[in-house]
């Protein structure tokens, strides 16, 4: 199985803090990886590095064999954990913007996703509720036929109904020639979508592996393992 993402000994240091230290992990092509951990564990930094928005201090990161840069940005579809859209744009204009800059943007699929999410292209981003902005952003990100989807807290602002709409869209659009890395606090709701899981704590990988093997080995759900891992860490 070929690896779409190869990360080895990745370290990211800021002046006062170390966000990631010696992270090594691979994402096989066609796999969905869950990036788990409490706030401040380095998930967002790792995802921003994959998206080419943060430069690594040391170590190597390869996305489809290339170091993050202009070429990888063309094949990585990134969903940040905050609203990255200009408020003056309408949903449709945001679609035009994506279509203009990303050659893998599929307008037809965008329209389909807007229909599924009950959004219309005339709505202004600035006038949408938090959950609707979230759905618009997800529609944009999933409308790209990207090689790698990097989704930071994609279910954060969604109600249970919207969450199931999004999960359905995710399964319906998933292809075997792409991979997905996603972080979430709602482990129980999405753990059935993970092929692989990585538990991060204070910038280090504390546990990683195939979700099904972890379930078999520990006789526990990923959520239980999450509680165990971080409960343990906290009392240490």
């Amino acid at each position: 199985m070929s690896m779409l993402v190869e990360i080895s000994d990745l370290t990211k240091r800021y002046i006062t803090t170390t966000a990631l230290s010696d992270v090594t992990l691979d994402v096989p092509e066609g796999h969905i990886m869950g990036l788990l951990g409490p706030n401040g564990s380095g998930k967002t930094t790792l995802m921003k590095i994959l998206a080419g928005l943060v430069s690594p201090t040391s170590g190597s990161v390869l996305v489809d064999g290339m170091a993050p840069g202009v070429a990888t940005k063309a094949i990585v579809s990134f969903l940040p954990d905050v609203n990255h859209l200009d408020r003056w744009m309408s949903v449709g204009e945001a679609g035009d913007f994506y279509a203009d800059f990303f050659s893998d943007f599929d307008r037809k699929r965008f329209q389909e996703l807007l229909d599924i999410m009950d959004l219309s292209s005339g709505q202004k981003i600035g006038s949408l509720s938090k959950g609707m902005v979230e759905k618009a952003r997800l529609s944009l990100v999933f409308s790209r036929r990207a090689r790698l989807y990097v989704l930071d807290e994609p279910f954060g602002g969604l109600d249970p109904l919207a969450r199931s709409q999004v999960l359905d869209a995710l399964v319906a659009n998933f292809r075997t020639d792409c991979s997905m890395v996603l972080s979430t606090q709602m482990v129980a709701d999405v753990e059935r979508f993970f092929d692989d899981v990585v538990f991060l704590d204070r910038g280090c990988v504390v546990l990683s592996g195939e979700a099904e093997k972890l379930r078999t080995r520990r006789g526990a759900s990923i959520e239980d393992i999450y509680k165990e891992v971080y409960g343990h860490v906290e009392t240490r």
């Binding site: 928005l53 070429a71 940005k73 990585v76 905050v82 990255h84 859209l85 200009d86 913007f97 990303f102």
Partner: peptide
């Protein structure tokens, strides 16, 4: 700010 995530994730130098 937040809009930088859009501008800088575009495949532009």
């Amino acid at each position: 700010g937040d809009t930088g995530y859009l501008v800088f994730s575009l495949p532009l130098r």
